[in-house]
Design a protein around this nucleic acid. Structure first.
Lengths: 240, 240
DNA sequence: CAAACTGAACCTTAAATTAAGCTTAAAACA
DNA sequence: TGTTTTAAGCTTAATTTAAGGTTCAGTTTG
């Protein structure tokens, strides 16, 4: 997720930033109220973590302004412990959750996760299908020509990624970010190995189809040398 | 259902909590008015049981605030006996039902059930059945091939969750939120242990069936590695 | 001009490593 | 007390690594 972190204590801010980044988020830090307000108006963050006491503007003003401008990202506010009136005011102003300082980092992460989940559950998890391949995320199966295939977790997510945007070529970096959550630790070879096994499974499945969709069933996933991978474009063209 | 119980007498609160949990609800308890107010703003409970006399805020203030913020969950208020003015004020403020203390626990349960039924967004309490498993939330029993089985509360709610959407895979996080009410405190291992005992009980029960439904009765609940758990899909396919 | 060469990108497989999940008993809770 | 949670050792599956093999595009050489 893309997170804006608004916190004037620089020490705290930077340790939170690092922690959130380790969880795979992209974090922008702002130490100042006015700056925060502007950033929030200009960017579509997935979430904002907002300290309530800030130089120049207080959290409430900022949040009210954002909500008045229809900025809908979830906001997690940080308040001093026992500052109950502020909490209530914050929730009224449109905050989605709150935490009293001091808090454990684990707790912050848990809340960020929960908020993120809440907003991502709004997105569609509907079944996807391209040509003879169908994938249902909620039920967690893949069918080729109506026959179920079992895939391992990484293979599954990777296939889902390719199916969701069938024409698009995904670079190794993009794949690492979206399947592994981060490009740091993932070697090229890891991705290649995963592509390889996924390809084999898809090829086996395509063999069992009555109809023939491709000349070469080992090319359900195409390699674009130097660029990345994509679903075989014949699957999207021939079908409807 | 996911119920918030606001009651400052800790003794009473904990016995109500236990009773409601035995009925298969997920219950969160708060002893303090301000904290209650916040929790109600932040979470989408299915129902709130709200004592009218509380430290820090009184029930009426809280409820009015919630309603002003469009929190629509049904609220059952608890008032001192004979406190008629309060009752009227409470209903005006948006309470859906009231009870005078002291009350019998049975009566409380009845009203909670009634309120739950009344609220349209409630999931239906109708008996669920999948294959040879039948579960009645209201009567709180489970039968396998017609033979009753006793389950512990957590096991029961978990099974209910899986039965209600038999094809769907539930992640540990989803299970934590819907069986324990929150993913914060629940460790993976807790869920695994609960699954394990539930599995064993179901397996024993399946052994006693005349008909054979599965090759391996310890697989009534399937593990989808890296994704979560679901009811064995053979139960849903062969049936009907 | 075409055959051979070269280096980079990519593929494949099996072994090694790591992670996910299971189970039981004991501890903690209510 | 009965239920829930934690802890520890275990089992099994998924993932990554590693090593050698291909393919491709561009370049050199016969």
């Amino acid at each position: 997720m893309w997170i804006l972190l608004v916190e004037d204590e620089k020490q705290l801010a930077s340790s939170l930033k690092r922690g959130l980044e380790e969880e795979g988020h992209v974090v922008e830090v702002v130490h100042d109220g006015e700056e925060a307000e502007l950033q929030g108006l200009v960017n579509d963050y997935d979430m904002v973590v907002l300290d309530w006491r800030l130089p120049n503007r207080d959290g409430k003003q900022i949040l009210e302004h954002w909500r008045a401008e229809d900025r809908t990202f979830p906001v997690l506010m940080l308040t001093a412990l026992g500052d109950l009136d502020h909490k209530v005011a914050g929730l009224d102003a449109g905050a989605d959750d709150y935490m009293g300082k001091p808090f454990s980092f684990e707790e912050l992460l848990a809340r960020v996760r929960a908020l993120g989940r809440r907003s991502s559950e709004m997105q569609n998890n509907d079944p996807v299908s391209v040509g003879p391949i169908e994938l249902d995320l909620r039920k967690h199966w893949v069918k080729v020509c109506g026959i179920k295939r079992s895939l391992r977790p990484k293979e599954f997510i990777l296939l889902e990624l390719l199916l969701n945007e069938p024409e698009t070529v995904f670079s190794k970096t993009q794949i690492a970010e979206r399947v592994w959550g981060s490009a740091y630790y993932v070697s090229d070879n890891t991705i290649e190995a995963t592509i390889s096994t996924l390809r084999q499974k898809l090829a086996e499945s395509f063999e069992e189809c009555e109809e023939e969709f491709l000349e070469d069933n080992s090319k359900v996933i195409e390699t674009i040398r130097g660029a990345g991978y994509r679903l075989n474009s014949n699957l999207t063209q021939t079908n409807e």
